[in-house]
Nucleic acid binder design. Structure first.
Lengths: 257, 257
DNA sequence: CAATGATTCTTTATGGCGTAAAGTGTGAGG
DNA sequence: CCTCACACTTTACGCCATAAAGAATCATTG
């Protein structure tokens, strides 16, 4: 089940995010771990298990108990804040505008999508009150720079930036959830659909008549990449088409008044 | 923290979703509860606490222990499946096309947004493998019917439907998280921002120089509705603007080749 | 060089969770 | 009236985050 993550103590979180761990080095035994090592280990665990990873699992991966982590990090919430910003660290801080804003936004969307698919738990960290780490600033700045170059007014740009973020997040989430589901249950998409639809057809035989438009929507399928699972193919195609439509909307705003 | 919800046993879930509880009525004491009552109670609890609601809390609201629920419902996952479909029950099953597809989509988007904001936990139920309840079918059918009326090919329509869903979900989630955060901590948006940005400015004094475009993006603000919290105002404005851009993109596809 | 005390890490314990298993009481069917 | 299916409670188990207290380590001070 789920609860929003992140949102630890502001001072501790922001200090760790921007300054890193303090190094006083006085008496006492030497630290064998570090905040960085803990964040790395936690990301590795979360990539496999999602935000429901346990502090025990992270400690184990480092050869320590769960409680050892609390020497470095105030709690799980603050650790998630740090993981979040680290996960965004691989994203570019700026994009070339040589080929125009549309190409740049497309590259931004693909990079961001890939990052989310690699670290799906990022999508479960609350967006309403951002973590405010340096890399979150950097990627937001990267998109802002592209959008500002269109010359559109700020109000329009904020709406567009929001729509782009929502779109990329949603598309990535669909793929990530499909993978998580088949990974967790060991059940391929086809088997899953088969099991459900068999029961469904048995209980509700005239589904097609009741929901005709749903079936019209299923026409005109692209030949699928047989390497990829069913749902993933679908998600990829929808990502391409949806992004194009969205950018057409931006283009309309740019070229027309 | 979080784990995807739903995804219970297919047969039990789908039977409960489509057929309702069986009524054999033979020996034993009469049931005082019902699946419906449990789902209602669970939704009420989840509206307040999110998907991390406990079975104990639902039982308590009904004057029972947590274990009493297991007589009616196989487990929490299946209960969430039922809650999900019930939450969508209030949404229209079709929209009038008298004023054109654009007006209809706009109404669909607002209705759906409102439902998500009222039941934010719905957004945390996995989309990759849908719950497949009757009301989920109905709302998807409603949007499909509108989109099919544009005459666009199926491949394009699926991408557009995905983009619309992602957009509405993302926009609603932002508002829901903002409300949840201020509700949980009792901290208004302004206080929260103040606490964070004070620490931030102290640690990183030249933020504005480092991320100039972010600040350009903040220009040209609409006069805010003083009734609403800061973040919510923002989210509403972005919803309006973003939806308009998205629909402009659809319009471009409809009017051009 | 020993004593001090801060620091790292482990152990133990608390209160939460979902739910398995076993027990209790009710009431219709034989 | 007896039986036994059923609704419901009690108890228990193994997870979780993390508070509190103890053990080990080591730079510093007397």
């Amino acid at each position: 089940m789920v609860v929003y993550a992140g949102q630890g103590d502001p001072r501790r979180s922001i200090e760790l995010l921007w300054r890193g761990a303090a190094e006083t080095r006085r008496p006492g035994s030497k630290p064998a771990l570090s905040v960085d090592a803990i964040v790395d280990a936690a990301i590795a665990v979360a990539d496999e298990q999602g935000l429901a990873f346990s502090m025990r699992a992270v400690g184990e991966r480092l050869g320590r108990t769960a409680m050892a982590l609390y020497t470095y990090v105030p709690g799980k919430n603050e650790l998630v804040d740090l993981m979040y910003d680290r996960a965004l660290a691989g994203l570019p801080g700026s994009y070339s505008l040589d080929e125009g804003w549309r190409a740049a936004v497309t590259r931004w969307a693909h990079d961001t999508w890939e990052c989310y698919v690699r670290h799906p738990w990022v999508l479960q960290v609350s967006q309403a009150r951002p973590v405010l780490g340096p890399h979150e600033f950097a990627t937001t700045e990267a998109l802002a720079a592209i959008l500002v170059s269109t010359g559109l007014p700020g109000r329009r740009l904020r709406g567009i930036a929001g729509a782009l973020h929502y779109f990329v997040r949603g598309a990535a989430q669909t793929v990530a959830e499909a993978r998580a589901a088949s990974g967790a249950t060991g059940e391929a998409d086809e088997e899953w659909w088969y099991a459900r639809s068999a029961v469904l057809v048995e209980l509700e035989p005239d589904l097609e008549k009741k929901y005709p438009m749903l079936h019209v929507l299923e026409h005109d399928r692209e030949p699928a990449d047989p390497e990829l699972p069913y749902l993933e193919n679908d998600a990829m195609e929808n990502f391409r088409v949806g992004l194009r439509v969205l950018l057409d909307g931006v283009e309309a705003a740019v070229t027309q008044p």
